[in-house]
């Protein structure tokens, strides 16, 4: 089986530019292509314009928050199989119902370990059928 030479694309969404920079640096160093967005609405336009394999989003953001973005992704068949991971500094967990309806596959806390973040991204990409093949 031949390895796919095209790098996987991760959409990183956070209204904190520094977080986006740090996460993007780690992911690019690991061989991913990274698209940066600073609120949910901007991320939504990026999703429509580019092929994205995984979304890593913050929760508290202006314009459209992380849950809102995740729901839109879950509700759109074009993005079937695109896992959404949430990286949030909120001190509470989402209630199970809200979590189930959002399509978020995993929650990660801030402050985060870039190494653990990378591991979780790899694990979640391995769990899903690549979107390009499914399409």
């Amino acid at each position: 089986m031949m390895e796919d030479p095209t790098p996987k694309t991760i959409l990183v969404v956070d209204d904190e530019a520094h977080i986006v920079r740090v996460v993007a640096f780690k992911l690019r160093a690991a061989g991913f292509a990274v698209i940066e967005a600073f609120d949910g609405e901007e991320a939504w336009s990026c999703l429509r314009d580019a092929e994205v394999d995984l979304v890593l989003t913050d929760q508290q953001m202006p314009v459209l928050d992380g849950i809102g973005l995740a729901r839109r992704i879950a509700g759109d068949p074009r993005f079937k199989g695109v896992p959404v991971l949430m990286l949030t500094a909120r001190g509470f967990r989402l209630d199970p119902e809200e979590f189930a309806g959002s399509g978020i596959v995993e929650m990660l806390d801030k402050p985060f370990s870039p190494r653990v973040l990378l591991e979780r991204i790899h694990a979640n990409l391995a769990d899903t059928t690549p979107r390009r093949e499914a399409a």
Binding site: H18, I19, V22, F25, K26, G91, K110, P111, F112, S113
Partner: peptide, 23 residues
Amino acid sequence: ASHELRTPLSSIRATLEMFEEGD
């Protein structure tokens, strides 16, 4: 406040780890 404190801490902690891991 906890949210606001964790946000700058995230960048600091991530940078330190990347340093440690030779990134």
